[in-house]
């Protein structure tokens, strides 16, 4: 085993931050749909880790961060019904498609967006962590402290429910 890294070292702390802050932020965002709240959650989680740095071993830092963020989120009880606004990327500048087709596309995207917003929190975070952040099921399982099997089930249900809502277009 390599030398033990102490979370109390600021270099180690910074390393953990650059490695995990982004996915922690996305994770919080998929839960809350609120970017300002998500930034606060990330901030609080890292401060909490720093304050408890003696108790957090390096190998467990990641799951500590995700657990803390999750708990902090649950503590902020008054979260609204989540309506997510996902930024569209890769929007084509010019296209040969007909206006009619583009309209339909736009409609479909809106519908899908709403459907994702309507997913259960647990399903939504799994689905988006996998689809957008390209996290493997195993990684997600670690983050959420649940089994890989549970992640797969949530994934399956999420996709199934999305199709039921937007499928027949």
């Amino acid at each position: 085993m390599s030398e033990k890294k102490s979370v109390c070292e600021s270099s180690v702390f910074e390393e953990l931050y650059s490695e995990h802050s982004k996915s922690l932020y996305n994770f919080a965002f998929y839960k809350s749909g609120n970017s300002a709240q998500s930034e606060d959650l990330v901030q609080e989680a890292f401060i909490k880790m720093w304050n408890n740095c003696a108790k957090v071993i390096f190998e467990k830092a990641k799951s500590f961060l995700f657990t803390v963020t999750n708990n902090l989120f649950l503590n902020q009880v008054a979260h609204k019904k989540v309506v997510l606004n996902y930024n569209l990327i890769g929007g084509k500048e010019s296209t040969n498609e007909s206006p009619e087709f583009l309209m339909e596309e736009k409609e479909f995207m809106d519908l899908l967006q709403n459907a994702i917003g309507d997913l259960k929190e647990g399903q939504r975070e799994v689905f988006l962590l996998n689809r957008i952040d390209k996290k493997t099921y195993k990684e997600i399982a670690e983050m959420l402290s649940i089994s890989v099997k549970a992640v797969e089930k949530r994934m399956h249900l999420a996709l199934k429910q999305l199709r039921e809502k937007v499928g027949n277009i």
């Binding site: 982004k22 569209l88 990327i89 479909f108 899908l112 689809r131």
Partner: peptide, 17 residues
């Protein structure tokens, strides 16, 4: 339909952090 959803999802991303 599933494929379409999955393809469309590629276009989403979380806000900048």
């Amino acid at each position: 339909e599933y494929q379409k959803i999955i393809d469309a999802t590629q276009n989403f991303k979380a806000p900048n952090f």
